[in-house]
Amino acid sequence: MEAKKVRLPSFIVVGFRIEANLDELESGIGKNTYDSLISRKDEILLKKNENMIFMQIYPMKSGFNPRIDRFTQIFCYEVNEVDSVPSGMVSHQVAECNYVTYTHKGLESELGRSYDYLYGQWMREHGHEPIGYDFEVWDDRYKPESSDNEIDMYVALG
């Protein structure tokens, strides 16, 4: 699948929010947060589906380095509306926006290549700028340690 530009309507998510850099995320905090959400997902009312969303919100500052600088990550599910937010979780409203979307195929550990393509080559070739957040959709194709893994990626465009 080639990257393509799409417009998505606004949506609401509910889940766990953490502040960490990529090294902290990969050292175990990400897996622990993922496991916590899986174990408590039935507490989230009015879920649209069973697809987990992993959202990353970046500070728009020059020289930002996700390996060193902390940023917001939300492990969540899309909901039809916020009825109630379970203890320790947050709700987050995402505005209607244009995105570049791409399906990463292969090991999750190789996801950096797909992000480099979207944030680098694709942005340059199409004259777009990112606006500080992206998200991944983890559905039944999400098998992070398998070459059959597929992750739909969305990068918000300005």
Rank of each mutant, 00 (worst) to 15 (best):
G28S: 08
V13K: 00
H126S: 08
L118R: 00
I57N: 02
Y142R: 00
V137D: 03
L118M: 09
Q93N: 14
L118T: 02
N21P: 01
I57P: 00
G15F: 03
S10N: 15
L25D: 00
V85P: 01
F16N: 06
C76R: 01
E108V: 15
G112K: 11
S10C: 12
L157E: 01
Y34S: 07
G158W: 05
T33F: 06
R113G: 11
N149E: 06
F135V: 04
H128Q: 14
S62Q: 14
K41S: 14
D23S: 14
T72C: 08
N80R: 13
G120K: 04
P130E: 14
K61R: 13
Y34N: 06
E150Q: 12
R141W: 07
Y77D: 02
N149Q: 10
N49W: 08
E2C: 06
E19H: 13
R67F: 12
H92E: 13
Q93K: 12
D35C: 13
L118G: 02
S114T: 09
S91G: 06
E43H: 10
I12R: 09
R70L: 07
E108Y: 13
I53E: 00
K41I: 07
E78K: 10
H92G: 04
K4E: 12
V155E: 01
E129G: 08
N65Q: 06
Y117Q: 02
C76F: 13
C97P: 02
E19S: 11
E24T: 13
I29G: 01
E26W: 10
L22N: 11
N21Y: 03
Y142S: 02
L45K: 15
D42I: 14
M52W: 01
E43Q: 14
N98P: 01
Y133M: 00
K48D: 07
G15C: 04
L8D: 07
E150N: 07
T103S: 07
V6K: 03
G158T: 12
N32C: 04
F64E: 01
E78T: 12
P86W: 00
D23R: 14
E50T: 13
R141I: 04
L157V: 09
I68C: 04
E136A: 12
S87G: 08
V137C: 07
R17F: 03
L107K: 07
C97Q: 10
S147K: 15
V94E: 00
Y58C: 05
V79Y: 04
F11D: 01
Y77T: 07
E50N: 15
F16A: 11
S147A: 09
Y154A: 01
R124F: 08
N51M: 07
C97W: 05
N32P: 02
S36H: 10
N65C: 08
F71H: 10
M60T: 10
C97Y: 04
E145M: 14
L46H: 08
H126R: 11
S147G: 08
R113F: 10
G132C: 06
S39L: 12
D42S: 11
E81L: 10
E26F: 13
E110A: 13
I68A: 05
S62P: 09
I57V: 08
K143E: 06
E110K: 10
V13Q: 02
T72N: 03
D148M: 09
S87K: 04
L25I: 15
V14F: 02
S87N: 11
Q56D: 05
W138A: 02
L46Y: 12
